[in-house]
């Protein structure tokens, strides 16, 4: 049995097909990082992350500065722990606050960072202390109803 260029082409074809299946299976997935540039990791604890997903953008003043790298549940504090990779070129002071925001009414959720006035910058592995949870519509309506009821009580 001799090998020929035909075998080579069929081999390439089968490999490309299986490769395409793999790409689909991973869903062109796990493309770590937002592309070029080195990053450093930060973490923050939120009471409620709403619909935040891994690889969601981290924005500051509307500029994408990094990506959410992982979301897990903190067994000691009973809240959500979000880790994110921030590009090395962007620096944030120690008293930066993080909040979970929504782009548009029905848009995706992202983490918004707002710098403070501290002179020392955040470093790899640091934790953002001030956080604000995602707005949950049901809770908002609940609060609204509660305050309305309280108003009605005052009038009497």
């Amino acid at each position: 049995m001799q090998r020929s260029t035909l075998d080579l082409w069929v081999g390439i074809f089968v490999m490309a097909g299986i490769g395409a299946l793999l790409v689909l299976a991973m869903k062109v997935g796990n493309m770590t990082g937002s592309g070029s540039g080195e990053t450093y990791a930060l973490s923050a604890n939120f009471d409620n992350i709403g619909g935040l997903k891994p690889r969601a953008p981290v924005k500051s003043a509307g500029v994408v500065v990094g990506r959410v790298s992982g979301i897990s549940f903190d067994n000691e504090k009973f809240n959500a722990r979000v880790t994110m990779n921030i590009e090395k070129t962007y620096k944030f002071p120690k008293d930066t606050s993080a909040s979970i925001l929504t782009s548009g009414l029905l848009g995706e959720q992202y983490v918004g960072l707002e710098g403070g006035g501290d002179t020392v910058n955040l470093n790899t592995g640091d934790k953002i202390k001030q956080t604000q949870s995602a707005v949950v519509l049901e809770k908002l309506i609940g609060q609204f109803l509660y305050s309305k009821a309280a108003e009605g009580g005052d009038k009497k």
Binding site: A25, K27, V28, G29, M31, S34, G35, K53, P54, R55, A56, P57, V64, R67, E108
Partner: peptide, 15 residues
Amino acid sequence: DEGSFWSQMQSAVDF
């Protein structure tokens, strides 16, 4: 946005 393009795709497509 590249990240949401891929991340939403990955979370929506089931193997």
